[in-house]
Design a protein around this nucleic acid. Sequence first.
DNA 1: CAGCATCCAGCTTGATACTG
DNA 2: CAGTATCAAGCTGGATGCTG
Lengths: 141, 141
Amino acid sequence: METTARAVPGTEGAGSDADPLLFDVFARHCPSRSTLEHVTGRWGALTLGALHEGSLRFNQLRRRVDGVSEKMLSQTLHALERDGLVHREAQPTNPPRVDYTLTPLGREVAERLLSLIGCVEDRMDEVLRARERYDEARGAR
Amino acid sequence: METTARAVPGTEGAGSDADPLLFDVFARHCPSRSTLEHVTGRWGALTLGALHEGSLRFNQLRRRVDGVSEKMLSQTLHALERDGLVHREAQPTNPPRVDYTLTPLGREVAERLLSLIGCVEDRMDEVLRARERYDEARGAR
DNA sequence: CAGCATCCAGCTTGATACTG
DNA sequence: CAGTATCAAGCTGGATGCTG
């Protein structure tokens, strides 16, 4: 609905940027594209979703996001931390303990993400039926 | 590994299968996971976003979603069509003309997606600053 | 125009092993 | 526990060529 354009950034550094596009993710080299991919990527989305329920430690997260390898989780967390969506808090104890939490920005993003995830899950029966129809119509051929 | 093994493992403990989780995307083999990936995938998200502005033809879509190859677009559209998010209408004219449109379900999903995309774009300056901070703190090391 | 088939480079991912 | 390093395999996606 209020898909109104974003607030005009205005002071966007040097040079005038006459780009009247509503969303420029559509443009190939827009930085928002990479962020969007971190957010919506297979593990990014699930990680943000898991973190939305509360702060979690590395291995808790690993168990929560079923199927993620430790390498992928580590990588995902770095990307999200770099984008300012996740905050990493390491305690210098022994054994080490590190908590991952959403930043305010991360929480906003996660909320929208969860709305999307929820929508998809709510309608899965519809999706499943559509798949059956589709497969039937082609498998027959 | 375990090819088959059919019966419900039941390792989950208490919950009966009749108790649907709120969000089971977190589970590895949940069908919603694949749909979510079609929706949030690099090209799926942009395709749904483009289609939200109105019905488009194959090559229009290709131009709109900057960087997508025809193979990927074709593949993406098939997945979205199979999931019941996109409707494909082919007109038997010459030259052929095919219109892609969002289904009602697709529109719902697209709206949430656009809310997410909009959120990310609105806050890109924040993301960019976070990246700078992060890189500075590590590049130094 | 709309799209499928094939080839293949290379990025992504998962195992495995090791560190603090 | 919380990661990093390395390597092989496989899937992703681009280029090209062809059909209806």
